[in-house]
Write a protein that binds this DNA or RNA. Structure first.
Lengths: 338, 338
DNA sequence: CGGACATCTTACAGCGTTGTACTTAACGTT
DNA sequence: AACGTTAAGTACAACGCTGTAAGATGTCCG
């Protein structure tokens, strides 16, 4: 049924290895032979057996991308980009849903499909430094995204969160806002997650001579729309509600916008809203969402490149901290309708 | 470096095959031996080499899910569900982005990763019956989703599009609307795509004794937000604009809502909007989006089950047309604010 | 106490591929 | 003409695993 190298070889009247050489474009094959073999390949419809190849070479040309929830637009868009980037290197991407649960993230790190994956791109939520440390031995991997704790255990690709948060905050301040809330502060357990952004947030305040009202820093359990809506409701119920909100990601902001609309609070007049991630949804929301836009294509490219390097060499080169560009994209939720 | 069965066998003082038997929970192994072997496995940290296994068995326990664009919420949410369903069968999902381009969809069908995939779940856009026919030989596959032309070449899982479209249209009619537009009609090339929904649309009209104004059936090139926005603009520019719009999917509807908001047309008072897919985005849009909600979990389960059957047996059983449940979810875009 | 039987364990081959080491042929140089 | 040198192609083993068939061990009965 299946066509093997052997079949092609017999059909072309050469040895198996010569066929293999043709397939790989190796040297030491006459044009004549090459043509003969290629014809046989086409005629028989030969397709290399990747299992056999990877058994022999130890490579699968598959990398895993582990994300908390593929259903979340940011991760879906990221996955999209990563697949493109990987494609350019001849790699296929195996997306894995960790659900942000530790157990599952741990499983990913110690090898989802043991021996089946050349490397991992990992965008964790729950995982912390300890586990990461343990992990780094198994298979080359690169951390990416903004939810990652600062590590020093592996390559990490992200934008400069301090600078980005500062730019977002400064934008609100320039618009004359002074009571700026934060949704998704997560002071609680995983302090490290939001820490750099809060730092940038405070920096911007300091530079403008404004004080931060810590009652306006709202932690959320998750980073999704319902949490955003709930946090916004909480803020509006305060005696002195904020005049603007910096959301740790766009879906939180979408949730916040929803609550503001329900309560008839006008955006941006009464409350300005800014998000983070620049998902497509925010470009079509009403009002459209001002946000920090990471260069996702660059993110994917840099991450994949770094992983490729780890795979093909420098497995134990010192970990690098790689930064990508970002942009403040001003839309209606802070600037109003033109 | 890597731990092989052989290493475990030596460490435990048994043969390789016995270790293999333990790993697979086969019979004919004493509890004593089993324990001994299990200890060795744990101590050495043995992980089976999947390439070798699949070379030997011809199975990889990987299925592919081919979707047009992972960045689109519907497909991302679908992928999420499929991964869960596959997980229950011990399968891993390899998501592939076809971009809706023929060439790429063809590549998927003839084997993205030849010999590397046990089966394919395919949610095509561009592909038509001919290609599908050619394809069905290579590897077991199941078609799913609503964009699929009626085939008869492979199992197909979807909701009853005629009934769903009729329910959506009937809902608008019950609200007293009579000039109902359709966005995403795609009369043009790929007629089959939207055909069953248009059929349901016409049925509902007939049942209510209403005429269909074919000028209100707007085809779109793609099924995304910009197209929805543009089509809506086109409709509003008409001499007699519609009083309601049935969009072929939710992102088209989101685009339409955006245009309506920009033009200051109030929804649902002036124009009611209904979508299709029930993506999370529509639950938080302003106004929230009435839609047809397919049971995505059921969809994923039914599709994966069908594929599993094809893989393990009945490769040439007659193709089945499988239907899943759907729901009309009424929200603000037709019912207004409560 | 030997043989039949069930239970447990083993040896071996082969899945399709590629890297290494080798053979053969062709060519140019002294 | 003898030699080295390079090019072109080949034979073979091994990657790690599992199915098959055969072997070893014990158990029970006549």
């Amino acid at each position: 049924m299946t066509v093997r190298l052997k079949d092609v070889a017999e059909h072309a009247g050469v040895s198996i290895k010569t066929v293999s050489n043709v397939v790989h474009g190796h040297i030491h094959v006459t044009d004549e032979t090459r043509l003969k073999v290629q014809t046989a390949i086409d005629q028989l419809g030969y397709r290399p057996n990747l299992s056999a190849r990877s058994l022999r070479t130890g490579r699968t040309n598959i990398i895993a991308l582990a994300v908390p929830r593929l259903g979340e637009p940011y991760f879906a868009e990221l996955a999209d980009q990563v697949m493109h980037a990987a494609d350019r290197h001849g790699y296929t991407v195996l997306v894995d849903n960790t659900e942000g649960r530790r157990e599952r993230e741990g499983a990913v790190v110690s090898g989802i499909q043991p021996q089946f994956i050349d490397g991992i791109l990992f965008s964790p939520l729950a995982l912390e430094a300890t586990e990461l440390e343990v992990a780094s031995a198994e298979v080359p991997f690169v951390l990416l995204g903004e939810h990652v704790p600062a590590t020093g255990y592996a390559d990490h690709v992200s934008l400069d969160n301090v600078a980005a948060a500062r730019a977002a905050t400064a934008h609100l301040i320039e618009l004359g806002r002074s009571r700026i809330a934060v949704i998704g502060a997560r002071r609680a357990r995983r302090a490290r997650t939001a820490a750099p952004r809060l730092k940038g947030f405070r920096q911007a305040h300091r530079e403008a001579g404004l004080a931060v009202d810590s009652r306006l820093l709202i932690p959320t359990e998750r980073f999704d729309r319902p949490d955003g809506a709930q946090a916004m409701a909480h803020l509006l119920d305060m005696r002195e509600p904020p005049d603007s909100v910096f959301c740790m990601n766009d879906v939180l902001a979408i949730g916040a916008l929803r609550t503001l609309a329900e309560r008839g609070v006008s955006v941006p007049e009464d409350v300005a809203v800014i998000g983070f991630d620049d998902i497509a949804e925010g470009r079509y929301s009403v009002p459209s969402l001002t946000t920090i836009a990471p260069d996702k294509e660059q993110l994917a490219n840099v991450a994949v490149d770094a992983l490729m390097q780890r795979i093909s060499a420098g497995r134990n080169a010192p970990p690098r901290e790689l930064h990508i560009d970002f942009n403040l994209v001003i839309r209606e939720s802070t600037a109003g309708r033109p």
